[in-house]
Design a protein around this nucleic acid. Structure first.
Length: 872
DNA sequence: CGTGTCACG
DNA sequence: ACGTACGTGACACGG
C-alpha cells in the first residue's frame, strides 16, 4: 500500500514558531513559545493529513559539506537566542512523546535528509508532504511531493504543488535552485550574482531555463548586466551548488522505519504538563476521558467496619468545592499498600470507632491539603490528629512556584496520571454536579491510592533538598493550627458594619453629585475609561501616564494633578470611600456566617516566598493606614463577653532578617542598640547626627530601606519618592557605602542564584529562578530582584510560622483559653479573656521573640483593646 | 475573563 | 537602551 509520508524540518519550524509567537514562559520559567507553536502546527497537520509515516529532521552541528564549498555559508547569522536553544531538548521530548522518528546526520542539514528521503519515497511511488519554514524546500516539489511552507504565523500554511510554483514564479520546482544561484539568499549568506535580484533572475530563467543556459547564451546579454554576469560566473555556479539540496545523503534509516502509529498518550500528557500547555491538556482530557487509566480495585464500606483501620493509611476526605468551611462532604477514602476503601460520609459520621481513629495521633494519616479536611471534619465534630504526610504541602515545599489546587494536577508534576481532575468529575460553572455514585467512589478511591503511591517520591525530594525539618516541624504542624484558627473564625459586629455602610453610602452620594456638577456631566466614576475621557479630554488635564488600554487614572497620577483641578480631590475621596464600602463593608457582610463570624481560608501552598495568603474574606488587607478605613477594624470584636482583642507584631522583621543574613556591621549594631532603624539609616546615609535628621531625610531613608528589601532599583525608588532616577541612584550608592555588608550580601545572593538556579531562606525554603540567566533584560532583572527579596521575605515568613507553632504550644501548655485568630505576615491577632491579659503581655512577646535565634534581637510590640481597632 | 485600581505586609 | 520596585486578594468595568 502506498504510504503518506510527512517530513518535517525541525530547526526551521522551531525558528519560525519562536519568532512568530511572543516569548511565553511556563511556571518553571522555561520558555515554551517555539515548542508550543510547533505543537499547534503538529496537531493541525496530524488532524488534516492522516500520515502513515513521519519524521522530523534536525540540523546536526555547525558545519556541513557546504562549508567546504563556501566557507562563509550561513555566515553573519545571529547566534541562536538562548531562549530558543533551551527549547530544543523539550522539542525532542515532545517529538518522542508523539512517537515520531527524529533524525539528524553529521555534516548535513535537515533539508538534505528530507531531500534524500523524499526522492526515495517518490521512487517507491509514495506520497510525500514536506513541511518547513524555508522556501528553498520548494525545489523538492514534484507530482507526488507537496511542500508546505509556513506563512506569517505557524499554523497558517502555503501549499506548494508543481502548479502553484509555476503560478507563483513561472518556474519549475528545480528552477528554484537556479533562481537562488542568480539572486543568492541573504539569510544563508549565499552570494548569487551581485546586482541581480528576483526580477532579473526570473527574466533570465524564463529565457534560458537555468544558470548553465544563461551562461551558454551569455552573448545575448548586454551592458551592465552582462558585465556583472561575466564577472561573477563562478559565484553563480557556487551559489547554485549551495542552494541545491543534496538528495543522496548517506542516510541509514529506511522509509519503513518512519511508520507512525500515534502518540504515547501518557508521555504526551507528561510533556505537555511539564510545559504547562493547559488548553491542550484540557482538550485531550475531554477526548480521552475514561480511557487509559490503570484499573483499580476498591471496596465500598456500606457499614461500619473498623477492622479495616490500620496504623498508617492514606486518607482522603472528598469535598465538593474549595470553600471547605461551607461545602458538602462527599465521602472518605482510605488506602494502604494492599487495599483501597471508600466510605460514604454517613458511615463515617455514625461510627465512634472511626472518629476515635481520626482523633488518635498515633494513627498516621497520609493526606493532601490536610487543613481543608481538618476544617471540614470540624464541622461534623470529627477531630483530626496524626497527619504525618500532606502531599500538597510537600509538593509546595519542593517547588513553591507551581500552582497547587487539584490533586490531579499536583501529582502530574510527579508523572502520575491515574487520577482525574475534579473538574472532569463534577463539571464546572452552572453545570457542576455530583456524578453517579460509582463515578464518585472511583474518583475518591483513586485519590487515596494516589497519595499512598506518590508519597515516597515527594519525601525523596524533600530529603534530597534537606527540607525535612521545614516540612515536618514547620508546615505540617502549622496546617493543623491554621485549620483550627479558620474554624474558630473571627467575630464581626454586623450592626457596626451596616451603620458605617449607611453613613458611607450617604457621603458617597453627595461626593458623586458634586463630581457630576463640577464635571458638568454624569458618568460612571468607577469606570477608568469614562473617568479618563472626562479628565483628559473634556477637562483637558495633562496626560502624565498611560496604560495599555488608555489613560491611567491611578492614585499616584491623580495626586500629581491635584493642584490643577478641584475635581481631583473629590475623585480621590470617592475612590477611597467607594473601596471601603464595596470591599470592606458590603464584601465583608456577605462573608459573615450564621455564627456571626468570618472564617477565612489561609492558603498555605500558594505564595512563591512562603508567606500565607488569606481568602473569602481576605483578612490580611483590612485597612489600617488611613483613619477612615481603620475604623473598619472596630467591627472585629472578641467572640466572648468581656474578652479582649490582642495584637502582637514584629518590629522591622525583614530588615532584622537582612541584618542577620548580611552580617552588615552597621545594620547589626543598629538593631543591637534598638535604634529607630530609619533614623539610623538616615544618619549614616546623610552623615548627620540623630538630632539633625529631618522628617524628609527619615522618609527617604525609609523608602531606601524598603527598596533594599524589595531588591532595589533606582527607577523603583525614584517612583516611590517622586524624585529623578539620578537622585535615586545617588541615594542607593550612598546607602551601599554606609552598609557595604548589605551590598556584598545582595551580590552574593544573585551570584548563588545564578550558580544553583535557586535561592533559600533560613529554614531552607527554596525558590527556583530560571530567568536569572535569561538574555532578556527584563526577565533577568526581575529574577535578580526576586533573588534578593525572596530570602528576606521568605525567612520572615519562616520565623512567624515557627512563632505560631510555639505560640499554640505555649497556650496549650499553660492551659490558657486565649485563642490565636489571625496572622498578617508580621503580626498575630488573638482573642483573650481579661484575666489572661497580664500573662499574655510577657508570654506572647517572649515566645515570638525567641522563635528563632538570629545575630540581632527580634522585637515584638504588644497591644490590646476591645476591638481590633483598639489594638494600637 | 482580562484589566485597572487599591487594600494590606 | 532596555522599563521595574517584593508578595498578595477583591472589586468594578466592559468585551
Amino acid at each position: 500500500m502506498a504510504k503518506k509520508i510527512l517530513l518535517l524540518d525541525g530547526n526551521s519550524l522551531a525558528y519560525r514558531a519562536f519568532f512568530a509567537l511572543p516569548l511565553l514562559t511556563n511556571e518553571h520559567g522555561i520558555h515554551t513559545n517555539a515548542v508550543y507553536g510547533f505543537t499547534m502546527m503538529l496537531q493541525r497537520i496530524l488532524e488534516e493529513e492522516n500520515p502513515t509515516h513521519m519524521m522530523v529532521a534536525f540540523d546536526a552541528g555547525k558545519t556541513t559539506f557546504r562549508h567546504e564549498t563556501f566557507s562563509e555559508y550561513k555566515g553573519g547569522r545571529q547566534k541562536t537566542p538562548p531562549e530558543l536553544s533551551e527549547q530544543f531538548p523539550y522539542l525532542r521530548k515532545l517529538i518522542d512523546a508523539y512517537r515520531i522518528k527524529r533524525y539528524e546526520l553529521d555534516n548535513y542539514e535537515a533539508d538534505d535528509i528530507i531531500g534524500t528521503l523524499s526522492l526515495e519515497a517518490e521512487r517507491a511511488g509514495d506520497e510525500v508532504v514536506v513541511i518547513s519554514g524555508d522556501k528553498d524546500m520548494t525545489q523538492l516539489v514534484s507530482p507526488s511531493t507537496t511542500v508546505y511552507i509556513t506563512r506569517k504565523g505557524i499554523t497558517d500554511i502555503e501549499k506548494y504543488t508543481v502548479d502553484h510554483v509555476r503560478e507563483k514564479y513561472g518556474l519549475s520546482p528545480l528552477q528554484i535552485i537556479d533562481m537562488k544561484g542568480l539572486m543568492g539568499d541573504s539569510s544563508d549568506n549565499i552570494p548569487g550574482v551581485p546586482g541581480v535580484g528576483e526580477k532579473t533572475a526570473l527574466k533570465l530563467l524564463a529565457a534560458h531555463g537555468s544558470v548553465e543556459g544563461v551562461y551558454e547564451a551569455i552573448d545575448q546579454q548586454k551592458g551592465k548586466l552582462k558585465e556583472k554576469l561575466v564577472a561573477n560566473e563562478e559565484l553563480a555556479h557556487i551559489s547554485k551548488k549551495l542552494a541545491t539540496i543534496e538528495r543522496n545523503a548517506p542516510i541509514d534509516i529506511s522509509l519503513e522505519e518512519l511508520a507512525y502509529d500515534g502518540p504515547d498518550q501518557d508521555e504526551l500528557v507528561k510533556v505537555w504538563h511539564e510545559l504547562a500547555f493547559k488548553t491542550l491538556l484540557e482538550k485531550m482530557d475531554y477526548t480521552a476521558e475514561q480511557t487509559e487509566k490503570e484499573e483499580m480495585k476498591f471496596q465500598v464500606l456500606e457499614h461500619v467496619d473498623s477492622s479495616i483501620l490500620e496504623d498508617e493509611m492514606a486518607v482522603h476526605l472528598e469535598l465538593y468545592d474549595e470553600h471547605y468551611h461551607t461545602c458538602e462532604l462527599l465521602g472518605v477514602s482510605l488506602a494502604t499498600a494492599a487495599k483501597t476503601y471508600v466510605i460514604p460520609m454517613s458511615v463515617v459520621e455514625q461510627s465512634e470507632e472511626f472518629r476515635a481513629w481520626f482523633r488518635d495521633p498515633s494513627k498516621k494519616k497520609y493526606m493532601s491539603d490536610s487543613k481543608a479536611s481538618t476544617a471540614a471534619f470540624y464541622r461534623c465534630g470529627i477531630e483530626l490528629n496524626g497527619v504525618e504526610f500532606d502531599l500538597m504541602l510537600g509538593a509546595y515545599i519542593v517547588n513553591p512556584s507551581l500552582t497547587y489546587t487539584d490533586l490531579s494536577n499536583i501529582v502530574r508534576e510527579y508523572g502520575y496520571t491515574d487520577v482525574a481532575t475534579d473538574e472532569q468529575i463534577y463539571g464546572k460553572g452552572a453545570k457542576k454536579s455530583v456524578p453517579a455514585e460509582e463515578v464518585l467512589h472511583e474518583h475518591i478511591a483513586r485519590k487515596a491510592r494516589t497519595i499512598w503511591t506518590v508519597r515516597p517520591v515527594v519525601l525523596k525530594k524533600l530529603e534530597d533538598n534537606e527540607q525535612f525539618d521545614l516540612y515536618y516541624h514547620l508546615e505540617l504542624p502549622l496546617a493543623t493550627i491554621l485549620g483550627a484558627m479558620e474554624s474558630l473564625g473571627v467575630k464581626v459586629d454586623k450592626d457596626q458594619l451596616a451603620n458605617m455602610g449607611k453613613e458611607l453610602a450617604e457621603k458617597l452620594a453627595e461626593i458623586e453629585k458634586n463630581i457630576y456638577w463640577i464635571a458638568g456631566q454624569e458618568f460612571n466614576i468607577n469606570s477608568p475609561k469614562q473617568l479618563g475621557v472626562v479628565l483628559f479630554e473634556n477637562l483637558g488635564l495633562p496626560v502624565l501616564k498611560k496604560t495599555k488600554t488608555g489613560y491611567s487614572t491611578a492614585a499616584d497620577v491623580l495626586e500629581k494633578l491635584e493642584g490643577q483641578h478641584e475635581i481631583i480631590s473629590h475623585i480621590l475621596l470617592y475612590r477611597q470611600l467607594g473601596k471601603l464600602l464595596s470591599t470592606y463593608i458590603e464584601g465583608l457582610l456577605k462573608e459573615i456566617h450564621e455564627d456571626g463570624k468570618v472564617h477565612t481560608r489561609f492558603q498555605q501552598a500558594l505564595t512563591t516566598t512562603g508567606r500565607l495568603s488569606s481568602t473569602n474574606p481576605n483578612l490580611q488587607n483590612i485597612p489600617v493606614r488611613l483613619e477612615e478605613g481603620r475604623k473598619i477594624r472596630k467591627a472585629f470584636v472578641p467572640s466572648e463577653e468581656n474578652w479582649l482583642m490582642v495584637a502582637a507584631d514584629y518590629s522591622q522583621i525583614e530588615l532584622r532578617v537582612l541584618a542577620h543574613m548580611s552580617e552588615d556591621e552597621r545594620l547589626v549594631e543598629a538593631f543591637k542598640n534598638d535604634l529607630d532603624i530609619h533614623t539610623a539609616t538616615a544618619m549614616d546615609v546623610f552623615h548627620v547626627e540623630a538630632e539633625e535628621v529631618t522628617g524628609d531625610m527619615r522618609r527617604a531613608a525609609k523608602a531606601v530601606n524598603f527598596g533594599i528589601v524589595y531588591g532595589i532599583s533606582d527607577y523603583g525608588l525614584s517612583q516611590n519618592l517622586n524624585i529623578t532616577r539620578k537622585e535615586a541612584a545617588a541615594f542607593i550608592d550612598r546607602y551601599f557605602v554606609s552598609f557595604p555588608g548589605v551590598r556584598k550580601y545582595m551580590d552574593d545572593t544573585v551570584q548563588s542564584a545564578k550558580k544553583d538556579g535557586f535561592v533559600t531562606t533560613i529554614m531552607k525554603r527554596r525558590r527556583y529562578l530560571p530567568d536569572i540567566t535569561s538574555s532578556n533584560f527584563n526577565l533577568r532583572s526581575f529574577a535578580e530582584r526576586t533573588a534578593m527579596n525572596t530570602p528576606i521575605q521568605g525567612s520572615a515568613a519562616d520565623i512567624i510560622k515557627k512563632a505560631m507553632i510555639d505560640m499554640a504550644d505555649a497556650l496549650e501548655r499553660e492551659g490558657m483559653q486565649t485563642r490565636m485568630l489571625l496572622q498578617v505576615h508580621d503580626e498575630l491577632i488573638f482573642e483573650a479573656p481579661q484575666d489572661e491579659l497580664e500573662k499574655l503581655k510577657t508570654l506572647v512577646p517572649q515566645v515570638m521573640e525567641s522563635a528563632v535565634t538570629l545575630n540581632v534581637p527580634l522585637k515584638v510590640d504588644f497591644a490590646f483593646g476591645d476591638t481590633w481597632f483598639d489594638t494600637k
